[in-house]
Design a protein around this nucleic acid. Structure first.
Lengths: 460, 460
DNA sequence: AAATTTGTCTATTTACATTTC
DNA sequence: GGAAATGTAAATAGACAAATT
């Protein structure tokens, strides 16, 4: 429940429409937007109830409603019946996490970039493919729905996660983000709502914004969505689907329990929700649990990118898609890309076919574990405990920090990190946490240096 | 009050709402949608005026208005004041031009796929890049705004067209379609309108659909937009921008005159329109004219893909973007892809840097010219005359054909072509024409065979 | 458990602007 | 050039439903 000291009197916002021209509802919406953007109205502020403002401005209730609605659709507000209308906490947050700007003085632990050492095999495979007689075709267009070879590689790839599907349900995409964007475009429409964990991957926030899709936080306990939370959002907020990251959730690094996976599958069927399951880190987990898709293949679009597990430069992800959405997804991918690179897709397939992918994966996991040992040692007591192959870690901050303030301090100290604000969904007040990347620093020395600098800040 | 005499009016549509439940406007919109999709209402049909239907159904005018509006936003209708509401001609048209389904019995002349012979150099460059010491980095993420090297290659690439810009205004994208999609997402919003030629590239239609952007045909004479047409659309249809293909326009293969290029630049400034200029075929033209962007660089997003000119498998396009939209475009590209493949982008840059791109281009142009000579000879009198390096050709059909009917006949005869319907924008009645691809058939023999089959159909 | 607060939704009234004839 | 046809837009009224107290 909102703990707001400013009650109904005095009104938190007293707009002046006397100087505006044209439609009242538009003028009101614009005023609201500018007051939010210039900081007069801060995130979390409760706006006056529609009726009160209507009274104050001597306008009809519906006119105010329309203005609020407009701003809500722009992601500036979030409203709920009986409760009121609040300024969204992510209204002004930055959505883009650009990769390090090649500033050699900064230690990049914000963006998550896999280290390059495992790329050697990928390179070798690329070279050997070019010696094949049909190599010239690797530089032509590829089929939007993928070749048979690519799709069979996808099937094999998914089997490693304990998810058994067939090549008719698999489509390749140009990376995980590309797959997420296409899935959103294919399966949802403007103004549709999708439930997510209360903090989630910023890439899905920016993709949803492109299509006017709204993300709403689903009530969660211990970093997992609850059954009541999902049912509530389905019945009362009219969400059409869910977006979840069951393995090493971004940013909490939490691994979802088997029971919750099964619960989500069951509730999705019940409530007719389409689940976008982002399996980006599934194979990094030792003996990974099967994805939600394995319990409800007709209800889940399952996305598995090779970026974090094999090599980001491959720009390859495989998508399992239910029959119902197959054509739509292919069309969306076509609209976004025309086609993926046959060269990169074929390299990916080849790596999977004869086991090189497994070797790379094992190597990567070993490398990540080595790094996590360092982090555990240096940040003991600060970092949230996690299994050793986590590519990202989560740090609970002392109460006097906010995620953003720590982010700024860390930058001063030469380390890039990501504050909780970047992950917040809807009008949830962001937690006092930051996420750090395990894999981005190019060497163990730089990682150690970065983590030590963070410890100094936390210790003060 | 409903009056009894409606049977006398020739109302084109008499919906029955008696069996529906819930909101009237929604029920009406759904009925309308299903009647369009199941063919009861054909493209081009004039719907009853809102007032008439309101009277007939005993509903308020605004209720009908709302239902029509909904369908219009779904791209099913197009309405204009004083004129009436019509079923869109592209309401049921297929948007996706999937590449040939590897059916060896069909001669593919529908989709435009560059022939693969020129890919040898591209392959060689790729191989040599892999031998460089920093090759492993080619498999990591790339910077969303492009590396310095990539952007400088873009500058050099644009100079070949006579367009001089600088590397701060250049962003790389994963191919031309990807660039178009990103540009639409970055520069326009839901329900915005964009003017296009009356027939245009289907890829822009499907991309616009993803974002709820509406394409409206701009009045054109002799295949070029007129000044009055653009001003009219700006002032009365409230278009926010234009999408144009000045060189070998798709599907007409028309090359826009220099005067029109300058006119569009001037009018865009005047009316504050943002032009998305698709320069996909510019460099295929012998001594190409400068793009519109060169006359109004602050008003034009200029896209130049390497797909048609160098190799489609490179999945590389360069985009010139005005300062005002730079950040938005980078964000949109990030939301769609995270990053492009550094490997492919670097191969592209390398090809441009030391002139290999020019050699490939010359070779391609020679190959296309050779093919056009064959087409000119066999389809003399049927095909619209064109310069020799056109990658696509336009055929005016005898009046008893429609584009679609010819498409079906050709398919029976073993040749895939694209009927005018696929390119039609808004509620313009499609012309009786088809587009054929010059470059797709893998050999000259197959091309000759395909073109001869088409001639047989046209001669009958 | 009932009353109150609060946002949402549909349909309507009224005025207006553009195009056609 | 004016009247008629036609679509568009804003503001309103009223009923409703969910959440809070």
């Amino acid at each position: 429940m909102p703990v707001n000291s400013f009650d109904n009197y005095p009104m938190s916002w007293k707009p002046d429409l006397s100087k505006t021209t044209g439609a009242k509802y538009l003028a009101l919406a614009e005023l609201l937007e500018s007051d939010i953007k210039n900081g007069k109205l801060k995130a979390g502020t409760k706006l006056p109830p529609q009726r009160e403002l209507a009274d104050f401005l001597d306008l009809n209730l519906s006119t105010i409603s329309k203005a609020y609605k407009l701003c809500e659709q722009r992601g500036l507000l979030s409203a709920s019946v009986g409760n009121g209308t609040y300024v969204s906490s992510d209204a002004t947050a930055e959505h883009v996490l650009l990769c390090g700007k090649e500033d050699s003085h900064m230690i990049e632990m914000g963006a998550i970039v896999p280290f390059v050492t495992s790329n050697l095999k990928v390179k070798q495979y690329t070279e050997s493919l070019m010696k094949k007689p049909d190599a010239l075709n690797l530089f032509s267009y590829g089929a939007p729905e993928g070749t048979r070879r690519q799709r069979e590689a996808g099937v094999a790839w998914f089997e490693k996660s304990g998810f058994y599907t067939d090549k008719e349900h698999i489509v390749p995409a140009a990376g995980g983000q590309n797959a997420i964007t296409a899935a959103l475009a294919a399966c949802f429409g403007t103004h549709d709502k999708i439930g997510t964990e209360p903090m989630t991957y910023p890439g899905v926030k920016s993709a949803a914004k492109l299509f006017g899709i709204h993300l709403v936080p689903v009530q969660s306990d211990y970093n997992e969505m609850t059954e009541e939370g999902i049912r509530y959002a389905a019945q009362n907020e009219n969400i059409k689907g869910l977006y979840v990251i069951p393995d090493y959730q971004n940013p909490t690094a939490h691994i979802m329990s088997l029971e919750t996976r099964k619960m989500i599958a069951r509730v999705a069927k019940d409530e007719n929700l389409l689940v976008i399951e982002d399996g980006i880190n599934n194979l990094l987990v030792d003996r990974p649990m099967p994805p939600i898709a394995s319990f409800a293949p007709e209800q889940v679009v399952y996305i598995s990118s090779l970026s974090k597990t094999i090599s980001p430069g491959l720009r390859t992800a495989f998508v399992h898609v239910p029959d119902k959405y197959h054509e739509k997804l292919v069309t969306a991918l076509y609209s976004l890309n025309i086609s993926i690179s046959p060269l990169l897709a074929t390299v990916s397939a080849a790596l999977i076919e004869d086991g090189a992918a497994d070797e790379i994966l094992a190597e990567r996991k070993k490398g990540i574990a080595e790094r996590n040992l360092i982090i555990n040692q240096i940040l003991d007591g600060f970092v949230t405990p996690s299994r050793l192959t986590a590519p990202l870690r989560y740090i609970q901050l002392p109460e006097y920090f906010t995620g953003k303030s720590f982010e700024i301090c860390a930058k001063q100290a030469g380390v890039e990190v990501c504050g909780a604000e970047r992950f917040a969904v809807g009008n949830k007040m962001p937690e006092k946490t930051v996420r750090i990347s395990v894999t981005t620093p190019p060497t163990l020395e730089i990682l150690t240096d970065g983590v030590k600098r963070l410890r100094e800040l936390l210790r003060q």
